[in-house]
Amino acid sequence: MIKISVNGEIKELKENLNVKQLIEVLEYKTKGFAVAINTTFVPIAKYEETIIHDGDTIDILAPVQGG
């Protein structure tokens, strides 16, 4: 069991997933957001090879209004 933070919320995973699997588990849609782990951007092309580790902080960002 590993503990991670997703958008500020603590979540527990049974195993070390990759980013693609994490997005599926969290039931995100396939497009319209971007992912960073520990303040480092993870491009879509690297979702499968990027493994989530215990203690990681994950940010999933989507478009909003801005000035």
């Binding site: 999933i60 960002l61 909003v64």
Partner: peptide
């Protein structure tokens, strides 16, 4: 425009 944290179920950002 900007980027902010979004939960899986939220539709607001995508509507925008």
């Amino acid at each position: 425009v900007a980027l902010r944290r979004q939960s899986a179920g939220e539709g607001g950002g995508n509507n925008f």
